[in-house]
Every structure is written in C-alpha cells, then in structure tokens.
Amino acid sequence: MIELYILLIFMIVGAIIAIEVKDLLSSVVTVGAVGIALSMAFLILKAPDVAITQLVVEILCLIILIRATLKKDLPFISTGRWFLNTLITVGFIAMFLFVAAKALKDLPDFGYPIMKVAKIYIANGLAQTGAANVVSSVMLDFRAYDTLGEATVLFTAVIGVLAVVRKIGRKNQEGQDD
C-alpha cells in the first residue's frame, strides 16, 4: 500500500506545481504527469480497464492542450483584493474539510466495500451475459443505460465544440469587430 501513498503525494505535489508554475507549457506537462500517476494508481488498485482508458484519454488531452496552448501566454494577475480572496479560500477549505471529515467517518473501510449490488454482478456476470470481462458485462449489459447516456454526453460535447468553433459565427464576429 506504500506505493499508493507515494503516488497520491506525487499527484498532490504535481497539482500544486501545475497551479503555481508561470510557464503555461510546463503547467500542461505537469497536469499530464498527474494523469499518468492516476493511471498507475488505478493499476495498483487492480482496475486495468480504468487505467487503460485514463492513460489514452490523458495522452489525447495532453496533445490537444499542448497544441492549443503552445506559443500562447496568459496574463498573470497578481494585483487586486488579495486579502478577501485569501479569506474566502481559507473559509471554503475549512468548510470542505469539516464536511469531508463528517462524511468520511461513515464510509466503509478502504478495501472492504459494501457489495450489495456488485455481488450479484460478479456471481452471475459470466453466466448471464457470456462476457469473460465483468467490467464489460456491467457496462454493456447490466448498466447499458449509463453507457448510452455517456455516449450521448460525448455526442453533445462534439456538437458543442463544432458549434463553438464553426466558421460562420467567427466571421460574423470579425465583421462586427472591424
């Protein structure tokens, strides 16, 4: 279990570096390192399906982010109401820690889940669906509605991206600006 804690600390440090570093490209690369560590953590927790998906999506997101942020620089805002901002941040962190401490007390111990529904899936997955991979049988047979909703979300996301970046709207905006 020690390697899991090492990975978790690595991810926290990487996330803090990604926020604090000035260069945008370094920040993107650090976010990619956090994603790779997350995929390794999934592997250690014996979830290879999630690890593969996390790894490939992380790589694709990294490529898209690097292509989108290369040669661009965001203005670094440091002036303003820093006292109020810090106060609000500390307040929210304290509230979150308080609620999390209350909620985590009622959770089952790590590695000892409450298996009311999953027990049936593990016992009957191979017999009822014929799929050797239980994750696949849950995703596409027992819980296929969730997968349909996920596919719809992705479809909507693609349509949204294509609608935002389409040429007609951009040209109209340029005309107004000129």
Partner: peptide, 18 residues
C-alpha cells in the same frame, strides 16, 4: 477483445483516434 480482456470500446476508440 473488450469482452474478454481489459479495455473496451472507449479505450479502443481513443487509441484508433490517436
């Protein structure tokens, strides 16, 4: 081989896109 080994439609599709 999504129904036999780890992986599946989502990961395979992303690799094909990659």
């Amino acid at each position: 081989h999504g129904h036999l080994s780890p992986g599946g439609g989502f990961a395979g599709g992303v690799i094909v896109a990659l």
